[in-house]
Simulated assay, not measured.
Amino acid sequence: MPRTGERGGPQTRARISEVATRLFLDRGFDMVTVAEIAREAGVSSVTVFNHFPRKEDLLLDRTVDAVELLRSAVRDRAPGVDVLASLRDVALGLVDTRHALSGVKDGSIPFFRTVAASPALVARVREIASDLQRTLAEELERDPAFEGDGGLLAAFFIAGYGTVLVETARRLMGGEPPSAVADDHRARLERLFDALRGGVC
């Protein structure tokens, strides 16, 4: 028999993620075991790994959302809208809504500190960035309306977006006012897209 709450799919996944995030932020990523998370969430360790193949993904659980946003920016853009404009709208939309992927969501500082303190999480972030770059490049290569160099655009966009995020995290952890950091974050994204427009597309 499954333990309490092991069924339910998305609800089980959400509960595991919530418990894991709370424990990681309270105690640090490396100080919490998957067995502890499973026990706190009322599931087995096997169930945890069924939903999250890697321990790191218990905290970095927005990768699927990021992939879908990139794919949608390419596939679902309106006729006459080029890829760079679509990516810009998505990126700035995340900032304006303070989405978790924007880097400026309220309460993000404990998350940033937890990631920065764990070499395993930092390494996983880099792997995710590489996966996102590959995803975007593949989407661009399949898009008959895109005439630029998809590999270069994907590389520059993901690297640039990551650079903006890292600087924003550094400033927030340094105690700068969140509203000022968010305004500068948006301005730096605008500069990123201006540079991409002038140099890649």
Score class of each variant (00 low, 15 high):
5 G>W: 05
5 G>C: 06
11 Q>A: 14
11 Q>W: 10
11 Q>N: 09
13 R>P: 14
14 A>V: 02
14 A>Q: 06
14 A>E: 10
14 A>C: 02
15 R>I: 00
16 I>L: 08
19 V>G: 07
20 A>K: 05
22 R>P: 02
24 F>P: 04
25 L>I: 04
26 D>M: 12
26 D>T: 13
29 F>C: 15
31 M>S: 12
33 T>C: 03
35 A>E: 11
39 R>F: 14
45 S>A: 14
46 V>P: 01
48 V>Q: 10
49 F>Q: 03
49 F>K: 01
50 N>H: 03
52 F>K: 13
52 F>R: 10
57 D>W: 15
59 L>A: 00
59 L>Y: 03
60 L>W: 11
63 T>G: 14
67 V>E: 15
70 L>D: 02
71 R>H: 13
72 S>W: 11
72 S>P: 10
72 S>K: 10
75 R>A: 15
79 P>C: 10
84 L>S: 00
85 A>K: 06
86 S>F: 01
86 S>R: 02
87 L>Q: 07
88 R>N: 02
89 D>W: 09
99 H>D: 15
100 A>W: 05
102 S>R: 07
103 G>V: 02
104 V>N: 10
108 S>Q: 14
111 F>E: 05
113 R>Y: 04
114 T>A: 15
116 A>N: 13
116 A>M: 13
117 A>H: 03
117 A>W: 07
118 S>F: 11
119 P>K: 03
121 L>F: 12
123 A>Y: 00
123 A>I: 00
124 R>L: 03
128 I>T: 08
129 A>T: 06
131 D>L: 12
132 L>Q: 04
134 R>Q: 10
137 A>I: 07
138 E>R: 08
139 E>R: 03
141 E>T: 13
143 D>Y: 12
143 D>R: 13
144 P>K: 11
145 A>D: 14
146 F>K: 07
147 E>Y: 07
149 D>E: 03
149 D>M: 02
150 G>R: 08
151 G>Q: 09
151 G>D: 07
152 L>E: 14
157 F>M: 01
157 F>G: 00
162 G>H: 05
163 T>V: 02
164 V>R: 06
164 V>W: 08
166 V>N: 11
166 V>W: 09
167 E>S: 07
168 T>D: 03
169 A>Y: 08
169 A>N: 04
172 L>P: 00
174 G>M: 06
175 G>C: 07
177 P>K: 12
177 P>Y: 09
180 A>N: 01
181 V>Q: 08
183 D>H: 15
184 D>R: 10
185 H>V: 00
185 H>N: 02
186 R>H: 14
187 A>Y: 05
191 R>W: 13
192 L>H: 06
194 D>M: 08
194 D>C: 06
196 L>W: 06
196 L>Y: 00
196 L>A: 04
199 G>Q: 12
